[in-house]
Design a binder for these strands. Structure first.
Lengths: 134, 134
DNA sequence: CTATATGTTATAGTATATATATAACAGATA
DNA sequence: TATCTGTTATATATATACTATAACATATAG
């Protein structure tokens, strides 16, 4: 899977890595059991430090997206990702709340906002669906 | 308007201030032309430093939510807030994208996600509407 | 056995962000 | 004149982000 980082972004590099790998799982580009590059390989490919990659992998492990075998390497959680709990839902609301507030101030309607959300769901489902034999 | 900050939060204090003031405008608790406490007053009330409040005010000014008169103080933008531009929309999508990705991985349906968004819109509109003579 | 690959740990250094503390300044107003 | 604005300037402390090296434990390939 292609990973690109933006050194100008205000998002830390390790966060960009975490996001892109989760997005890869969401689209189906990364499948359960699939291996990820070693910390050294990915770091070299991206021109960043091994510890930055390792930090991203540790966060993904803590979130339950990957398993880390000390020698085999890092693989996408083969058992599937743990379903959302109340804590995760709360985090979503907390993050979206200021966006909704500013949207209201700037005259973005509820329906317009929801259109953007639906577009994002469509984006991720484009590749994942399509085949019934999975 | 009541402002509360959480020193344990991973969000910087100045960001919490910015968010809560924008949310105050969204709910209608803060009205155009209304004055905000001076940087010293608010800092003292919250038990934080004057520069932290000032940073929040500067961000709100840059975003177009307040006017700052060097002597009069800080007031909610009397002309109303500038409508959303393409840049703002892009920012919304960028912020929501990783949330949608993780939601898909965690089996949160598009409709469930949208329900949470609608709940937030309802929350902000509760106080704002209600009266037709505004 | 040896070499190589894994993730892991340790140490150090640099740069930036966050928040604080103090002091002083410019200008309007009471 | 005293007091209230926001503003600017310094300095300090702490945490975060990122890098640079080195070394370690362990599984596997040759």
């Amino acid at each position: 899977m292609l990973i690109e980082i933006d050194l100008e972004s205000d998002l830390p590099i390790y966060s960009q890595l975490v996001n892109q790998i989760i997005e890869g799982i969401a689209t189906g580009h990364l499948k359960p059991g699939e291996g990820l590059p070693s910390v050294r390989t990915l770091a070299a490919d991206l021109g960043i430090n091994l510890h930055t990659v390792n930090k991203a992998y540790q966060i993904l492990k803590q979130k339950g997206f990957v398993l880390i075998h000390r020698q085999k390497g890092v693989v996408i959680q083969p058992q599937g990702i743990a379903k959302a709990d109340a804590y995760f839902i709360e985090g979503i609301k907390e993050t979206v709340k200021p966006l909704v507030a500013e949207s209201i101030c700037r005259d973005i309607s509820e329906e317009e906002f929801i259109t953007y959300c639906r577009e994002l769901f469509s984006y991720f489902h484009k590749q994942k669906g399509g085949f019934s034999n999975e």
